[in-house]
Design a protein around this nucleic acid. Structure first.
Lengths: 153, 153
DNA sequence: TTTAATTAGGACTGGAGTAGTCCTGTTTGG
DNA sequence: CCAAACAGGACTACTCCAGTCCTAATTAAA
């Protein structure tokens, strides 16, 4: 089902949280705020920092903050940071190192599919994802259904 | 990385093969033609038949043939047949049965993402996937690199 | 200068889900 | 009536991800 990594969902939640923060926040604070175990949040934030989506500050009183506005961060960026490059087939990005030796009947050209998905994902920002929720459906407070495991298709 | 099921790739290859066939072909023949183990091909064809993408004929001299032209079969159709419905989050299609009780900070609205991907995948037909390969890059004959494991993102 | 806080980075492990196989039943042409 | 072929489901081995932990490296404050 074209599963999307669950960590990617965490990343979106964490980014949204940082978007609401006023100063740098430690991974512990973020974890507590969004209700996800700290080690996992730390892992996600590290990955996001590595891709420059969040800025990190080490040492005492360190933490994370957004490197750019949520409006200018696309889901494609997040997926890239968490799961790696967007490419359907190993054939495409792997450079043709097909393990099996079966015949390739011309078929299986996933490039257009990759491009289409990449474009679709690049067009949507994290801000878009939160903005599209009609106010009536927003959860007032307290525990609430949360976005979880992800599967496309 | 938004992994796409490998069976989906097989399905595309098998469909392309059936597109070249002149009469019904058994799963054995298809398997031999595309160089993939017969049981696996059989499994894929069954799934495609279940979704009406290929027509099956039982009994002696039975087999499979395309139910419609490759031009009118989208990858979304294939993914749906092999991997199930296209939806990024269990939150969305599962009806809100979130297992964890963590707080949902409004974030994680994957609906627009799902829609975008669905649209992108629906717009591409199997015929498109084979047609986009420039003639110069077509493999003349014999063993050749084959599309394999699939990952998006 | 020392100490504590905090990120960076990688290794490790358990579990979930998929690929692939196989078996049994049903249909159908010869 | 028999053999060929699909239908459908059960089962297993394996891969890969989620989650945890440990050890640096960095930095503010005392």
């Amino acid at each position: 089902m074209l599963r999307l990594s669950r960590l990617t969902d965490y990343a979106v939640v964490a980014l949204t949280r940082l978007g609401q923060a006023e100063a740098v926040e430690t991974s512990q604070v973020v974890a507590a705020a969004i209700g996800i175990p700290e080690p996992t949040v730390a892992k996600v934030l590290k990955a996001l920092a590595g891709r420059g989506l969040v800025a990190s500050h080490r040492g005492a009183h360190g933490g994370y903050r957004l490197a750019r506005a949520l409006e200018s961060i696309s889901i494609a960026d997040v997926i890239l940071a968490i799961d790696g490059p967007i490419a359907l087939t190993s054939c495409v990005d792997g450079g043709g190192n097909c393990s099996t030796q079966a015949r390739c009947p011309i078929a299986g050209r996933w490039d257009p599919v990759n491009d289409a998905i990449r474009n679709a994902l690049t067009a949507i920002s994290i801000a878009d994802m939160t903005a599209t929720v009609p106010p009536a459906f927003r959860i007032p407070a307290g525990p609430a259904p949360r976005s979880l495991a992800n599967e496309v298709a």
